[in-house]
């Protein structure tokens, strides 16, 4: 009888599977995502490599000495131990993070605009106390500009009424406001000494959200040649809430990581962060095969560093608030060894 190995589901629960079952999940994960994203499935060598990583009963795994990558850490800190700057120092000095990020709990550029002076002062103090690069991060969060949270007609309400033109116009109007707000906050943070700006969970509200991030990125690059600009995505696929928006003549709706990366490169971004969400009903083996299959085409053309999102619920790490280190470390090793990523 084939021995059973303790492994994880996408929701973090511990299950026992045989090596054959894990192998089958890896194959299904890559085949299904390849079909969905219209990319090639993983090669047999890559699947074998994943099987070695996932069909192991070890409590922890790691890359080979010398193969380590850079850790950028969007949303650095717990928010509940000490103050925010102490959070950054802790992650710099205790956890070995390479790039720490100052942020506020209402993680949206629109929300930060109203208290940017306080955020700038915190950044300045953080820069005095940290040796690590300190970036400032928030979400573009386009939805904040629609009613009732913002001044623009709500496109999610207009679309079901078949008011497509009005819904599109509303998104364009909101996009312009968002670009202005990202610039406003970024200007203050650069003045306060920030090493970089992070647009996290970009594209959460669809193609207009992504367009705002790219547009702001290009403007910031022109103003600040030295600035680190990270664009991390909300998910693997750009939703076409507008459907016709373009950047450099290319339609953004429906873009997968390879095309998302091309756009970020063209906009002048320093770091691109692909995000592939977890299916909680499948094993972590199934999920890692899916994530690597979808991101692999981007790695083949990358000219800038790629930091994969590998936190709770994305990139092969289970959707649970206490990610088990066995699952986290397996995802970590898999991305580094198979995709040769530049960081997390």
């Amino acid at each position: 009888m084939e021995p059973r190995i303790a492994t994880r589901m996408g929701d973090g629960s511990l299950v026992e599977m045989t090596r054959s079952e894990i192998k089958a999940d890896l194959e299904e994960g890559t085949q299904q995502s390849a079909k969905r994203a219209k990319v090639d499935p993983l090669t047999q060598d890559e699947l074998d490599h994943l099987l070695d990583i996932y069909a192991s009963s070890a409590r922890f795994t790691a890359v080979d000495i010398g193969d380590e990558v850079v850790m950028s850490n969007d949303g650095t800190g717990t928010k509940h131990i000490g103050n925010r700057v102490q959070d950054l120092q802790t992650y710099e000095q205790v956890l070995g993070i390479d790039i720490v990020e100052l942020w506020q709990i209402d993680y949206s550029y629109k929300a930060i605009k109203t208290n940017v002076a306080h955020e700038g002062q915190a950044m300045k103090i953080a820069q005095m106390l940290c040796t690590n690069p300190v970036q400032y991060g928030a979400m573009p969060d386009l939805g904040r500009y629609s009613k009732p949270d913002g001044p623009i007609d709500n496109w999610s309400e207009l679309l079901p009424l078949m008011k497509v033109d009005e819904a599109r116009a509303a998104q364009i109007e909101a996009c312009a406001m968002l670009v202005e707000d990202i610039n406003f906050v970024a200007d203050h943070m650069v003045e306060a000494g920030a090493d970089g700006i992070d647009m996290d969970t970009t594209g959460a509200a669809g193609d207009a959200d992504f367009l705002a991030g790219l547009t702001a990125c290009r403007m910031l690059r022109e103003k600040y040649p030295f600035l680190g600009i990270e664009i991390g995505m909300a998910s693997e696929f750009v939703l076409g809430m507008h459907g016709q928006l373009e950047f450099d003549g290319e339609r953004l709706a429906g873009m997968w990581p390879k095309d998302q990366l091309r756009m970020v490169q063209a906009a002048g971004g320093s770091i691109y962060g692909p995000a592939v969400n977890i299916n909680t009903g499948k094993s972590t083996a199934w999920n890692i095969a899916r994530a690597i299959t979808i991101i692999k085409p981007a790695m083949e053309i990358a000219e800038i560093p790629v930091h994969v999102n590998v936190g709770m619920g994305v990139g092969g790490v289970p959707t649970c608030v206490y990610p088990p280190a066995d699952a986290t470390s397996r995802a970590s090793k898999a991305f580094v060894e198979i995709l040769k990523i530049d960081g997390y």
Binding site: G120, Q121, M128, E191
Partner: peptide, 16 residues
């Protein structure tokens, strides 16, 4: 004094 970031702002020298 850094009072609420309103009197001494990020352009003003602080600390060391």
């Amino acid at each position: 004094i850094l009072e609420s970031g309103e009197i001494t702002d990020i352009d003003d020298p602080m600390g060391i």
